[in-house]
Design a protein around this nucleic acid. Structure first.
Lengths: 188, 188
DNA sequence: GGCGGATGTAGACACCGTCTACCGCCTTCG
DNA sequence: CGAAGGCGGTAGACGGTGTCTACATCCGCC
């Protein structure tokens, strides 16, 4: 769509990623999909890692966008919704989710990418902080609590990705996880 | 060590994996490390995936072995110890841990491997069941609870692997996670 | 003694990431 | 107007990879 060849390549790579998975996102296939020669992408990206990092950045941006308008009135409900949205994103975009955390394909020091992950982490941390301000686990260290909860939902997505979790039970399993951290209202 | 060339190749691959990471575990490098020609491994394994699956199987076997003799008198303490052992294994063998869950490098339908993962899952499930028999979360569905707790510790390991968790905080983060699932004794 | 399977070798093929040399087009400026 | 230069793209090469095939050993067994 865009005239910018960088954006065209990122778009081709994203489509290829969604259609055929991480394996297919090779420089030469991206180039073919974009209708250019196999060396062309290197005119715009220093290497494969840089291109894939740019693709992963869009994934983090999309993930963050999902955390912008969450349903729920209270901070506790919004945090719950964020956890569900995280897993939902992984289920809907498995290849993108895999790419986002494959440090052999992506360079976390790429500025754009590190901004993307930072934004997601910050957003999630803020949701946790607000929930704590509302009385939930107010005693716990915010950063540690954020990391722990993030890991819990991330692990669900990751286990599902590698086939260790049956897809039809993932919703129920997520419920169990959320109950452990945010037990259903009892006073709070 | 063993005379069996299969075992020799698995040993070479395992050493290479520990020394230089997942990237280095290529058929040709394994062959070179084992002192044979590049085509030799294919005499004993149908392909790279099969060899790496065999390597990953030893990883699951080691992981299961760690769950055999856990410290702790009660079922609750033993479950806690198992969770800690899981993360500890990942921290001590990052490359092996990564390989074990890389479905592009490993074939979960490989009988030996599927037996390995099954054994670990079963072992973990039994620890959960015993803890439930002891009164802990006796109301919850055992399978779902097992998956949820597994995902929580797995996510910690995975996030640490991809650099999203500072290594010096992982112990504290694990404590938070375990507190969420197994709050420190209060009557129980 | 000869035969067959297990083990290993060597070369080929297609694909990959990356590098380099070349080339056209467009802008910009002298 | 015309030359310069940069941007985008091409084509070929190189070393690496997994896999396949043809060939060479060697060792036990009938």
């Amino acid at each position: 769509m865009a005239d910018d060849p960088r954006q065209r390549l990122i778009a081709s790579a994203t489509a290829l990623l969604a259609d055929e998975g991480v394996e297919a996102v090779t420089l030469r296939r991206i180039a073919r999909a974009a209708g250019v020669s196999h060396g062309a992408p290197l005119r715009h990206f220093a290497g494969r890692t840089e291109l894939l990092s740019a693709v992963a950045s869009t994934g983090f941006a999309e993930l963050r966008a999902r955390g912008e308008d969450l349903p729920g009135v209270g901070p506790r409900e919004r945090l719950l919704a964020a956890c569900r949205a995280y897993v939902e994103f992984a289920l809907e975009n498995p290849a993108m989710f895999e790419l986002m955390f494959r440090r052999d394909l992506v360079d976390p020091r790429q500025p754009e990418l590190s901004r993307g992950t930072g934004a997601v982490r910050e957003q999630f941390g803020e949701l946790v902080a607000r929930a704590q301000a509302g009385g939930w686990r107010a005693d716990a260290d915010g950063a540690l609590l954020t990391a722990s909860l993030w890991a819990a939902v991330h692990g669900l997505a990751e286990l599902w990705l590698c086939g260790e979790l049956s897809p039809d039970r993932i919703d129920d399993t997520l419920d169990i996880t959320l109950q452990a951290y945010l037990p259903p209202a009892r006073g709070q």
